[in-house]
Nucleic acid binder design. Structure first.
Length: 432
RNA sequence: GGAGAGGUCGCAUAGUGGUCUAGUGCGCUACCUUGGAAAGGUAGUAUGUUCUUAGGGGCAUCGCGAGUUCGAAUCUCGCUCUCUCCGCCA
């Protein structure tokens, strides 16, 4: 969430920003609640101060009847005011949590996702001397995915991934883990992008796949709840992205500045109900209730936050380029970046089977919007305590990148060329 | 799942209703002492919020939340986490 002090001092800009994000919140009401709340808080503090005085006077013995009577009077007043405070506080917090993060000035203003701006296109759509097929055809024919049996066991939007496709996924995971946990690689990627950032490698993590309600909410990723799986009988949800469990990992902690930037590479299965997408992307494994993902997450000081975002984008581009995939980069507009974001980039990879670019990556920069509620802070060298900035970004969504590999690497006879960098992880094979 | 013990200031501990604005030790910081250091001494040592021109003050925080009370670290209830034992289990 935003700092209420920032909202007080920049109410107009906050209101405009909320409108630009298609997330209109009544800032005037919020400020009224804020002022009532503070007024009541002052009254409560004064009454408590009086009560503390009375308690102090009883030191060493029993209080007089007079003091007890005074105490009782204060207690009655406090009870009444505290009740009013609580009511207002609930409304205040509800409204405050609805205020979206401020978009950076560089984020294009837009009211639909069509207003995202393509900033870069790398490579050409793959050319074939035959009509390329989509991954669902090829993978079914090759015995790599079985959705019929999955439908029987779990319903739609699930699949059994089988055979060589499993090996391909493991190869990608191994390749990315090795690459991003290598400090010299990170330095190389940063230099290639002209970024002056730390070369701290990413630490591989296998995180828990469930998350408690309070942490999910603090990450500002619980809503819309319709898209989340809730576990019956426990205060737990299935995570929708490793970001959710990686970003909340250091809640309530204070880093030493020397520990930052702290970078993680999580490998986790993500779960999404895909509510409201009936009939959309039903072929193959593009949109599933469950998919495996390699996700990057980082914690930095405020000054390094945006460069960290650019580093993550550079890593995404590097990985896609290493696989030889044609892709394009989109700067997401205010409508599309999401409530906790200050800015966001999507990467779309060319899918010949669909004859279009489809989203395979996203990179989110949250400034201190998440860390404020998570209470994740850093002790600066100056001695100051500050909120950290958080970034998350997809390294690879395994399902989608395998679609891209299958469709871009297909041959006329239904084989698939393995990208060179992955071949060492597949026993040197060149084709699947 | 069952039984029990616990969660106190960075760390370790004391604290079973008012002298706790939480004691002590360690650590850390500054100063004194010293040729320098150690030892010793003195002072300080959290976070949030709010008021204040400043200096500083108020309030809250003893795992979290509710309750009892004039007054709660302390009593009651719920939750949570850790440890020990039993059961189950990859």
């Amino acid at each position: 969430m935003l700092d209420i002090r920032f909202i007080r001092e920049n109410s107009e800009a906050v209101q405009i920003n909320a409108k630009n994000k298609g997330n209109d919140v009544d800032i005037t009401s919020l400020l009224q609640l804020d002022s009532s709340r503070r007024e009541l808080q002052t009254q409560i503090d004064d009454l408590r101060a009086k009560r503390n005085d009375i308690v102090a006077q009883t030191k060493g013995g029993r209080p007089t009847d007079e003091l007890i009577a005074q105490g009782k009077a204060i207690k009655d007043q406090l009870t009444e005011i505290e009740l009013r405070f609580k009511d207002i506080d609930v409304d205040f917090m509800t409204l405050l949590k609805k205020v979206p993060n401020m978009a950076l000035a560089t984020v294009p203003v837009g009211s639909t996702e069509d207003e995202n701006v393509v900033t870069k296109t790398v490579g050409e759509p793959t050319k074939f001397d035959f009509k390329p097929r989509n991954h669902a055809d090829i993978a079914t024919e090759r015995g790599w995915i079985d959705k019929e049996r999955a439908a029987k066991v779990t319903g739609s939007r699930f699949a059994y991934i089988e055979g060589d496709l499993v090996k391909l996924q493991m190869a990608i995971v191994q390749y990315v883990m090795n690459t991003l946990s290598d400090e010299t690689k990170i330095a190389e990627i940063a230099a290639g992008a002209g970024l002056k950032v730390s070369s701290n490698p990413l630490k591989p993590i296998l995180p828990p796949l469930m998350i408690r309600t309070d942490m999910y909410d603090a990450m500002d990723r619980l809503e819309p709840r319709d898209d989340r799986y809730k576990l019956e009988g426990d205060d737990l949800w299935l995570q929708g992205s490793a970001e959710h469990v990686l970003g909340s990992m250091h809640a309530g902690e204070i880093f030493d500045e020397s520990q930052l930037p702290l970078r993680y590479l999580g490998y986790a299965t993500s779960f999404r109900r895909e509510a409201g997408t009936y009939g959309k992307d039903m072929e193959g494994i593009l949109r599933m209730h469950q998919f495996d993902k390699l996700e990057m997450e980082s914690f930095t000081v405020a000054q390094d936050g945006h460069n960290e975002h650019l580093l993550f984008v550079a890593i995404q581009e590097y990985l896609l380029a290493q696989l030889g995939m044609p892709y394009r980069v989109l700067e997401k507009c205010t409508f599309d970046i999401g409530k906790p974001n200050a800015c966001g980039v999507d990467m779309e990879t060319w899918l010949p089977g669909q004859d279009k670019y489809r989203e395979t990556h996203t990179a989110d920069y949250m400034t201190d919007y998440q860390s404020r509620r998570l209470n994740t802070r850093v002790r600066r060298e100056s001695g100051n305590l500050e909120l950290v900035h958080t970034n998350d970004a997809t390294a690879f969504a395994l399902g989608r990148i395998m679609i891209a590999i299958i469709e871009n690497g297909q041959t006329a006879d239904g084989q698939v060329c393995i990208p060179t960098v992955l071949q060492p992880y597949l026993a040197g094979r060149t084709m699947l």
